[in-house]
Simulated assay, not measured.
Amino acid sequence: MTFDVRARRVDAHGSEAACKSAHLVLDTDLAGRVDAFNPAELLMAALAACMIKGIERVTPILHFRLQGVEVRIHGVRQDVPPRMEEIRYEILVDTDESESRLELLHENVQKYGTVFNTVSPGTRLHGQLRRA
């Protein structure tokens, strides 16, 4: 499986990324932008999307019933060297499933997520999955 993304500088205030038929405005302005994701926020959004997609993938296999999912992520950046030092997450699942089934779902998110498994070796990545 391969993936392709194109990104280009629009001007000194921003850039854009494209993939398939989708386009994203990127915050590449040194002063920052409130209407676009900066690179660290994009990383965290990718992690959140990975978690949600993983849940979508395993719920039919596990016969896990849910009504909704929300992921909250908080990242801490260190300056020297610049990197994400820590990422904490909370996955909120709207479900009537048992606590043991919630733990099983969380294990699957941690074990089979492509972005999760890419980020976790180089960052303190920890969190919880709980009932909404």
Rank of each mutant, 00 (worst) to 15 (best):
E70W: 03
V58K: 11
R124Q: 15
H13L: 11
I61H: 09
V71W: 06
R88W: 09
T28S: 14
G113C: 02
L104K: 09
T95I: 12
C50T: 02
L62F: 02
L92H: 08
V76M: 14
I87Y: 05
M1W: 00
L102V: 10
R65C: 04
F64R: 10
L47P: 00
P121F: 12
T118Y: 00
L125S: 08
I61Y: 03
E97G: 01
V10D: 15
L30P: 15
E41Y: 03
D11L: 04
H126D: 09
D35P: 07
E103I: 02
V58D: 13
K111V: 08
M84A: 14
V58Y: 12
A7L: 13
I87H: 06
T123K: 11
H23K: 15
E41I: 00
R130F: 09
R83I: 03
I87E: 06
M1V: 01
Q110D: 13
R33G: 13
E107G: 12
A48F: 01
P60D: 09
D27M: 07
L43N: 00
T114I: 06
V119Y: 00
G14N: 13
R130A: 13
E103C: 01
A12F: 04
R77W: 01
A36W: 14
E107A: 12
R65W: 01
T2E: 13
V34S: 15
R101C: 01
L30C: 08
A22N: 11
H106W: 05
